[in-house]
Every structure is written in structure tokens, then in C-alpha cells.
Design a protein around this nucleic acid. Structure first.
Length: 274
DNA sequence: CACGAGACCTGTTCGC
DNA sequence: TGCGAACAGGTCTCGT
């Protein structure tokens, strides 16, 4: 589940709370338990426990697919990878399957990191930049102009699909939204980036922003057993719709493998040339 | 520089 | 029903 819209949804939930679910902002940390060692990227478990003590959560935000908690002295960062999830639970709730890290807060609530596949990671660091350093621009940030985007595309000959998945090129897109954005822009996933015209670059940026905004509006997409309450999966045009008719022209959606990732597109609306 | 393969993991679904 | 293969929202590292 976790690409930019899903991480944004979780960040908003943790920051603003929801009916019956308090906000995390302003809460002091009363301890932590690490149930799967490798979930903690840094520091050591012992240092983690001692440094968390006496800090409070000051702010919650997102950068790319990272969830950022600004603490009194440090930053607590999470990356959900494939199956991670963050939720607030009563501190006396029993452990659930796949719980990996629990941060106990004041007021009888805990922040729980649950992750079936164990790919997700948490960092406690003084400087968030040391973890986020290489990330490309935020796609929804107005300071990214179509001129900038065109220039970035023309700096490489890489194929569009793998390029959009590269977090150094642009932060936050994953397999779903890369496919959806290319479809909206009517661009074939294998086209070399430096072959796009200015107009095509513009419409790709437009497609990226359109699909990300639409998904955030629907609280992201929920697939399989990881459920966040979002329903953008009901609005996919190509992702995981192999063989189903293109919403634009009715041509069956094709699936190919690009960079070892399933890639979905309409062979008619997204031709290889022009 | 750019690409592909393999690793890290568990769970679900599909084909025989 | 059973069983193995394929596949899944991500990223890192290594070899060519």
C-alpha cells in the first residue's frame, strides 16, 4: 500500500487524529519495544531506548515515501516499504501478528509499526537529511516547474518507467502511480526520457500530479490484507487491470515486465513512438 | 552510466 | 485437497 498518497494519508491521520483516534502531536514518549531487530536501521536498540526517553512528538510530516516525526531533540523516521503500516492503538491492546516496533506514549496510547514482510525501517537521527539526503523533488511542490521537470528528463536516456520509480529523480512515486501517470500522459513506459517534447514532459508532470491528488483525496489505495480505509484502487485505469478494457478506447490493457516490475499500459493510447 | 539479477521477507493466489 | 510457482505497494548491492 505505501506510495506517496498512502504515506500522506497516514501522516495526516497521525497528525490530525480522527474520530476516536487522538493526534500524536504534543505527546511525550514513555518507552519503546522493538520486536524485530532489523526494523531499526539506527541507532542500536539500547541507544534508541535511552534517546527516546524524555522526548515528545512535536510534528508529523512526509517526504517522498518517508514518514517524519519531529521529536524534541531528534527525528524519528519510518519507511513502510512493501507492507509496513503505522497506527495508534491503546497501550493495553494485545500484540498483533507482525507488530515490529511499539512506541509507548502518554495518555494510554501507543504508535505501532506493523510490517508482515519486514522490509520496513525506522531511524532515530539528529539530522533527517542524513537519511533523506538523496531524494528528488516533491512532485506536488509548486516549486517544481514544468521547465525544471523537462530539464531533469532530458538529463538522462533512461526509460520512463524505471526513471519514475527512482526516488532520486522524483520522490514518492511507486509502481501503481508510475503506471497510472504514464497512462494519463499517454506515454509508453519504455520511451527514453530525453526523447520527450516539452509538451509531453508537461503532460507527464500533469498526469503525476493529477493521479497523486486524486488518490490523496480518496485516502490512498487499499489492496490485499493491508487496509487503510482508502478506496483509490477502485479508480485505477491500468494498474493490475491486465486484459481489461482501457477506459479511453477499450483496447485490452497490456502487462510487461520492466526493471523486474509488472508494468501496465494501453497499447493503443500509449504507443511506443510519438 | 545504465541495466539486470539477486537479496531481503511473508502471505496470497493461481495452475496443475 | 495439496503443492509449487508466481506474484505483491520497495530499495539496496553487486556484476557486467
Amino acid at each position: 500500500m505505501p506510495e506517496l498518497p498512502e504515506v500522506e494519508t497516514i501522516a495526516r491521520l497521525l497528525r490530525d487524529g480522527s474520530p476516536g483516534q487522538p493526534s500524536l502531536v504534543g505527546r511525550h514518549i514513555h518507552g519503546a519495544s522493538l520486536l524485530w531487530e532489523r526494523t531499526l536501521a539506527e541507532p542500536s536498540p539500547a541507544e534508541f531506548a535511552s534517546r527516546l526517553d524524555q522526548q515528545a512528538i512535536e510534528a508529523v510530516s512526509r517526504r517522498g515515501k518517508f514518514l517524519l516525526l519531529r521529536l524534541t531533540h531528534d527525528w524519528l523516521l519510518f519507511h513502510l516499504r512493501m507492507s509496513g503500516d503505522l497506527a495508534v492503538r491503546p497501550s493495553d491492546a494485545p500484540l498483533a501478528p507482525h507488530d515490529r516496533l511499539i512506541i509507548v506514549l502518554e495518555g494510554g496510547v501507543s504508535l505501532v509499526f506493523n510490517d508482515a514482510r519486514k522490509f520496513g525501517r525506522a531511524w532515530l537521527v539528529e539530522d533527517a537529511g542524513q537519511v533523506l539526503g538523496d531524494l528528488g523533488p516533491e512532485p506536488l511542490d509548486d516549486s517544481l516547474s514544468s521547465g525544471d521537470f523537462y530539464a531533469r528528463l532530458h538529463a538522462t536516456r533512461r526509460q520512463l518507467k524505471p526513471l519514475l520509480l527512482d526516488q532520486k529523480f522524483l520522490a514518492g512515486l511507486g509502481n501503481i502511480y508510475a503506471d497510472e501517470a504514464l497512462n494519463l500522459a499517454r506515454l509508453h513506459p519504455l520511451v527514453p526520457a530525453d526523447r520527450l517534447t516539452f509538451q509531453q514532459a508537461e503532460s507527464l508532470l500533469e498526469g503525476i500530479r493529477t493521479v497523486l491528488r486524486a488518490s490523496i483525496q480518496r485516502n490512498g489505495a487499499s489492496i490485499d490484507w493491508v487496509y487503510r480505509g482508502g478506496d483509490f484502487q477502485n479508480y485505477f485505469r491500468v494498474y493490475q487491470r491486465t486484459g481489461l478494457p482501457c477506459p479511453e478506447c477499450g483496447t485490452p490493457i497490456a502487462r510487461i515486465i520492466v526493471g523486474q516490475r509488472g508494468t501496465h499500459f494501453c497499447p493503443h493510447c500509449q504507443p511506443v513512438h510519438s
